[in-house]
Nucleic acid binder design. Structure first.
Lengths: 65, 65
DNA sequence: TAAAAATGTCATATATATTGGACATTTTTA
DNA sequence: TAAAAATGTCCAATATATATGACATTTTTA
């Protein structure tokens, strides 16, 4: 699983803390998701994607196999 | 959060147990996700969607607000 | 219409996502 | 070029997704 959170986040001039606040989670959570430390909840993945004004599958890339 | 797992699953003549086996999770897990008992992991949501040959956002509908 | 398969559900246990606090390092800003 | 902000990381605690086993009910099939 790959993601483009950092890239899209910077395009929007947002910080990890901004995203975290707006998603209602801790800053560490966004940091860990961004750096593939763990697999987020589907709802959190949707929240992040919406904040970045992207479709979920543009932000998170699932490589089957 | 709404999902169309049951509908797409029946279209493919698959059972909850089939999906579970192919996803590598327990049958109860698929049952709970299908019935909105809890929020699946992003990776599991992707696996289910791929098995149903659909995009994730066709299977899981996130209603913001 | 009885048997078999599929589903819903419950209880307990485990794995892991998420939290909160704290601090070091890196990046940005004044 | 120093101060401030942002990021990465660690630890311990908590919340919740997932597992396992078992059984009742519903749906499908022979």
């Amino acid at each position: 699983m790959k993601n483009y959170i950092k890239e899209f986040r910077k395009q929007m001039h947002m910080t990890q803390a901004n995203i975290a606040d707006l998603c209602g989670v801790a800053r560490q959570t966004i940091n860990c998701v961004e750096n593939d430390k763990y697999d987020p909840t589907l709802e959190l993945a949707f929240k992040i994607s919406r904040l970045l004004k992207k479709n979920l599958e543009e932000v998170f890339i699932y490589d089957s196999l």
